[in-house]
Write a protein that binds this DNA or RNA. Structure first.
Lengths: 209, 209
DNA sequence: ACATTTTTGTTGCAATTGCAACAGATTTCT
DNA sequence: AGAAATCTGTTGCAATTGCAACAAAAATGT
């Protein structure tokens, strides 16, 4: 968003002023929550990082989402009738704010003078989340791994205003994020290097075009 | 959403009570809007259907999104620095409500007693949109065309509470939606029929398992 | 500091998918 | 009703990707 909305500040206010939120801490690897029953739960990450993971019937793991500080996630954003087991695990030591969307709309209205500001700012978080999801879809709909990589590099490069940038994912997670085979991803990265399009040093990528 | 939120009713109220909205009509095939400059524009479909389309540098067309009555879309949901030309065309004769998110937050606050209700209900639309996007990602991250089809059929079947249902897309558009080659999609559909998993009559699918 | 776990890098081969092309069916337009 | 446009169904072949497997490197835990 190109607004001057201060996300961090809002989340802090939320945490302090709203009596309906819970805050919990998680060690790396701990399960934060599972999306099984529909509780309209929404979570905001105060610190740390989490992965939203799906295991399908064949046991294939896919990282459906990766969330970091100030990001919002929760089973309220998922259709009720899904087949898969979704769960969220802490990728790092994390502190997470929990609340129930319906509670916020119904009860909170009456005893919380922060309410109006809350809903407005929550909308901003929703919009940010929609932007993230659209970005992901943008990448997933690219036809080849090469196109996914180039589009992703482009985003990171534009974001850092630099031809040199460091990817937030390692290659294993990047393959999950693209939903492609890791070895196929590595092969394509190598081809991009061999053909002179990029240079690579770990997660640090340099665009040569 | 499993709330009793009446989307249609809200949108009607919005249309009637808010002075900041514009309503325009489009014939099939007309361009509704393009996502070029960042105007924080949000649109809601009053009637009809639209496609959000991307043409990449090679001229490949992808349907990034398809929106129908009561759905929300707009360039506010897309990152500002994208490379692609996105535009929205009317798939059917459509009537569309336009507004600017920032205007709503800033100006509207003071002269519109409908404001608080508006923002709350808008949040519901945002959540619905997030659910749709997550559903799409769910499908796009399936490894094979077969898995995409089976997952999609599953959703449609659960939605209609029936093993028999009619797809909202034709096969050309379905291929776009999955971001796969149309002939490869047809081939896989045929295999599912030959192997006895499904029956098909045009867009009407019967699950045999 | 050392053992253990995770990630990287690589390869051959098989499976899946994309591409191109075209005929027939269906839908849309006038 | 007839013409034009779009969609369906199909195929051979090439390109891309997934799978399996393993060694080396790096990161993590105690």
């Amino acid at each position: 968003m190109d607004t001057n909305f201060d996300k961090k500040n809002f989340i802090n206010n939320f945490k302090k002023n709203c009596k309906k939120v819970q805050i919990k801490k998680f060690a790396k690897g701990e399960t934060v929550t599972t999306y099984i029953e529909k509780r309209n739960q929404i979570c905001i990450i105060l610190s740390g990082e989490v992965d939203l993971i799906r295991y399908d019937v064949n046991g294939n793991k896919t990282i459906i989402g990766h969330f970091a500080e100030n990001d919002i996630f929760g089973e309220v954003f998922y259709p009720a009738n899904t087949n898969n087991e979704l769960f969220v695990t802490a990728a790092k030591k994390s502190e997470i704010l929990f609340f129930t969307y319906n509670t916020l709309l119904d009860e909170c209205k009456y005893d919380c003078n922060f309410h109006s500001e809350l809903i407005t700012n929550l909308s901003e978080l929703f919009i940010d989340e929609i932007i993230d999801l659209n970005l992901r879809i943008e990448l997933l709909t690219k036809r080849t791994i090469r196109d996914k990589l180039l589009a992703y590099f482009d985003i990171l490069s534009k974001g850092s205003l630099n031809k040199i940038f460091t990817m937030p994912y390692n290659y294993t997670d990047l393959a999950d994020f693209f939903s492609v085979d890791r070895s196929a991803l590595m092969r394509e990265v190598k081809l991009l290097i061999d053909e002179g399009f990029i240079k690579k040093d770990g997660r640090k990528i340099t665009l040569l075009y």
